[in-house]
Structures are given as C-alpha cells and as structure tokens.
Computed example of a mutant assay.
Amino acid sequence: MTILLTGASGTVGREVAARLDQKLPVRILARNPQRVIGAGPRAELVVGDYADPASLERAMRGVHTAFVVTNDVGGSDDARLVRAAHIAGVRRLVKLSAAAVEDPQADDLITRWQRDSEDLIRSSGLTWTFLRPRSFMSNTLAWASSIRSEGVVRALYGTSANACVDPRDIAEVAVRALTEDGHEGRAYTLTGPEPLTAVEQTAELSRALGIPLTFAELTPGQQRDQLLARYPEPLARALVQSAERQRAGAKARPTPTVEDLTGRPASPFATWARDHASAFTPGRERLPEA
C-alpha cells in the first residue's frame, strides 16, 4: 500500500516522512526534491506541482492513501488534487486543516478557505480524515532573530493564550491516520496539553536557553505593519483577525486527542523549547525549519 506525501519539505510533512518510511512504501511529491530532508532511504521522490495536473496524476498512480497539505489560500490546489486522486484511483485522503474551522466566530480568509477545502474533500466520494491542529509551537521560531541579537521577544497580545501543539505530535497522529483503519470520516482537533501565552512561552525559552529574555508587546499597528511587509493585504488581515480571536480566548482550550490516539500525553512547550534551543542560540546565522 503506497502512501503519497505532499508538503514533505514543510514543518509537519517532514516529520511525517521521517516516520512513515519505516512502515510502508512512501512516495513524496515535491516541486524541488532537494528541499525534502529527513525522508528515509526507501522513500521515492517524484517531481510535481499542483499547477501541473498531469504530474499529480503520475504521482498518484498506484497510491492508496495521500497526505494532503496545501497553502494556496483561496486557490484551487485542493480541487486539482482531488481530481487527480479520482483519476488515479486513490482511496483515502488525510488532510492537514486547522482547528479554527470548528469555530463559528472564525470567518477570516484563511479559515473560510480551510472550510471550503474540507467541504470539497467531504463531498468528493473519497474516504477522508481531517487533522485540525492549533498553532504550531514552532511558530515561535519567528522570534529567533530578535532573541539571538537582543534577548527580546516581540509579539502581539502577550497575555492571550493558545493551546499550541508540537508539530511532531501532529505527525504521529498523521501516521496513524495514514496507516491504520478506523480513522475514516473523522476530524481530529490537535492541541498541546495546556494553553500558553507569549509571555509564558518567553519564560520557557529563557529557561531552555539559560539566559534572561524580555517580552515586548507590539501594538496592533506595529503587528499589522510587520505582517504587511511579509504577506499580501488580505492574508495579513486574516492573521490580524485570528489574533483577535485568540485575545478573546477562542484558542485556549486543550483537547485530549493526541493522548487518545497515541497513548501518551501531548508534548508540552517546555520540551519543544529544549529540543530546539539551538535555533535561538546567539551566533547562529540561519533559522532552521522545525
């Protein structure tokens, strides 16, 4: 039973690739296979692109189950992938979605796109499983540069909590969904074991690094300017709306799903911080993905 992985060069996908290679035949679809690191020696790398339907169909031939990761917000990548899956005879899709789709108050661009993607897959006739994680613990890598150079964390709404999740926990659940029966038609909300604020994460990073760190709260205007420097305006606006929902407490509730599915508690942020302390250590020039 061959499994196709998309997004294998990303935060969660690379962790899935590293775990799956020990279990079943794995095929990895990538625009640039050189960016895929961590895959085992048995993994088959194929070149392809969501914008090239023929490459998707080739990649899916002989595939039973596919791990679906898309990031073309508002685009048609999911539709192209579903169409190719039908043509190739793929039976099951495991889709990386987002926890916000469950919140009726969440109506930003990114959440609407994720809902539409889920609806598309749900109505496709294919068997599906949705993974809906909270924010990744690895998002704090965005603070690495200012920590290394100044010992400062800058973020919006420092006392608003998020039950963020270790990407490695998401990957462990994904492997189970890809390789086991019983996950069909299920949607799993994945969180860490506790809600944490940016101020509390800063304290955990300080302990992991063994150095004092300072938290400096951004104003909404400063945050908006930072986002506009990196993203198109509609996407930046969606991220601001998401931060407002977190401020209102919408992202603070942990779920037991990781423990229910893996048999062990979800990993705390303190563990993630210790394991990735080198990324925040002064003297490092590059910020690794995790």
Rank of each mutant, 00 (worst) to 15 (best):
A85M: 08
P265S: 06
L120Y: 06
P104L: 15
R286V: 15
V36T: 13
T271S: 03
N139L: 07
S267K: 09
A229H: 15
R245T: 05
V173S: 00
S97K: 08
P195K: 10
R31D: 10
M1N: 13
Q114S: 05
E184S: 14
T281K: 09
L29H: 03
L205W: 04
D49E: 15
L4A: 11
L24P: 01
D21R: 03
L239W: 12
A250P: 02
A208E: 04
Y50E: 07
E57R: 15
A187R: 07
A79L: 05
G185Q: 07
Y50F: 15
P268F: 00
R92H: 14
E259N: 00
A155M: 12
T255F: 07
A290S: 15
L56Q: 06
S124A: 02
R237W: 12
R284E: 08
Q34M: 13
G74N: 00
D49M: 13
T11L: 01
T219C: 02
F215R: 02
F269T: 05
D169G: 02
F269M: 04
G185R: 06
D225F: 08
D21F: 09
W143E: 01
L5N: 12
P220H: 05
Q105H: 13
L126D: 13
R132P: 08
F136Y: 11
V94S: 03
N71D: 09
G89Y: 05
G38Q: 12
V240I: 13
P193L: 00
P53K: 05
R253H: 13
G75E: 11
V101W: 01
A155H: 14
A216P: 03
K95Q: 15
D78S: 10
R247K: 11
V36P: 03
T262E: 08
P193A: 04
R237C: 12
T197M: 07
S149P: 08
A177F: 01
P220R: 08
G48L: 06
D49T: 05
Q22Y: 12
G221M: 02
D225L: 01
L287G: 05
P232L: 11
R224L: 10
R274M: 10
D169L: 03
N71C: 03
K251S: 12
E102N: 13
L228V: 01
A144F: 08
T140H: 13
A8N: 06
L141C: 04
V199M: 14
F269S: 04
G249P: 01
R224I: 12
A250V: 07
L156M: 11
A161D: 06
R19L: 13
G74D: 03
S97D: 11
A243W: 04
A248H: 14
A171T: 06
L261N: 02
S146P: 04
R230G: 09
S55A: 12
R61C: 12
P104K: 14
V73C: 01
I87L: 11
